[in-house]
Design a protein around this nucleic acid. Structure first.
Lengths: 210, 210
DNA sequence: GTCTATAGCCTGATAGAC
DNA sequence: GTCTATCAGGCTATAGAC
């Protein structure tokens, strides 16, 4: 029997520890580069360099540039929507919305690369994830919009268009990640995230208090 | 005397009508292509084709890809900020804000390419217009933020952080242009601009009514 | 699994005829 | 002013040695 990787006995689920580490390093490097330059603007040289691999070795793990990109988008899309999934029908209406806003704002601060990755993709027409938008995303949003509408009907929130309310939360929170350079250029030394939580909390309290 | 262009007697300001028409066609084509694919993703072939010129002829009018791009950004930046400049210190405070929001939303509907051009540029770190952001833009925003603060101090608006109020207006209105595909994927057949004006009007009334 | 070398394509920009 | 032809460089992806 040959000393092939699959016969080593140390492999876990068909992938060695080195393979797992390299795949993770590649996706992290790809997130860096794709989020900064967009799909077309990124090069395999940059990604390979950031991952500490040679370019052909990079293509040993993923067979093409596009394969890296779509693997990255798929791996992130689910977690990206977690803050919205956590909206709890049993919770206090206004409190749930405010907590959702807070979670999204926290993600803009802690995961700006993910935000800019999706921003780049969507601004340019979402050529790689259009199906996910019209499928899973739409279903999830419709579900949560119905929940918001039920809160409004029960008099727990002031009346607003539920879908546009959700758009406003995405837009206001992701703005601090996607347009970070502009925000900081205008604010100077002031940290955007110092006043942003209070501002958004006030905004949604005043708008939604029944 | 040779029959050179400058001796024709029909030239206006050093440029013939054909030159003016071609320059305008180039900038319009460049707006199309750069706003859809970003600077790096755009190609001179696409721009030349959209403008109805050959690639070398394109480079006769602008000496490089970057020259086209920066000419476009400079030509648009001023008009892009007009809605904010129109904020009138003598007008009614809440009415002025609501009118500004409405003007910005109208621009997202009528000029989505311009919005996406700046979105692409800023998401990727604003490498070509960083100076303009930290210079002219910041000065203009600081000026209008002071105006908003004076309205708050006079009791004409509910207290909010003026800079973040301005960011919110940019974010909420431009979202409908920059993330158009996502908004439409979620809304399905419903026209985003049907409910958006009313939603934003309600939002800012409830937030700012003293 | 990882490397060097390179194929093959595309892109921005230039030369030179008309 | 506009074209055809083309160069030089950068890019993705593959071949093949180890």
């Amino acid at each position: 029997m040959s000393n092939s990787s699959s016969a080593r006995g140390l492999s876990t689920g068909g992938a060695t520890r080195i393979q797992k580490r390299n795949r993770a390093a590649i996706l992290d490097a790809a997130l860096d580069v794709f989020s900064t330059h967009g799909f077309r603007g990124a090069t395999l040289d940059q990604i390979a360099g950031a991952a500490g691999l040679s370019k052909p070795n990079l293509l040993y793990y993923y067979k093409s540039k596009e394969a890296i990109y779509t693997a990255l988008l798929e791996a992130l899309l689910d977690t990206w929507l977690d803050p919205m999934r956590a909206l709890d029908p049993e919770g206090d209406a206004l409190g749930e919305i405010l907590a959702y806003v807070r979670r999204k704002l926290d993600m803009s601060r802690s995961h700006p690369r993910e935000s800019r990755l999706f921003a780049n993709e969507i601004v340019q027409g979402a050529p790689h994830i259009h199906n996910a938008l019209a499928g899973d995303l739409r279903a999830l949003v419709d579900d949560k919009a119905a929940l918001i509408q039920s809160w409004i009907d029960a008099g727990k929130l002031a009346p607003v268009h539920p879908h546009h309310l959700i758009f406003s939360i995405w837009s206001l929170t992701q703005h601090y990640a996607d347009f970070d350079v502009q925000v900081r250029a205008v604010l100077g030394d002031e940290d955007p995230f110092a006043a942003a939580p209070g501002f958004l909390d006030t905004l949604y309290r005043r708008m939604l208090q029944p």
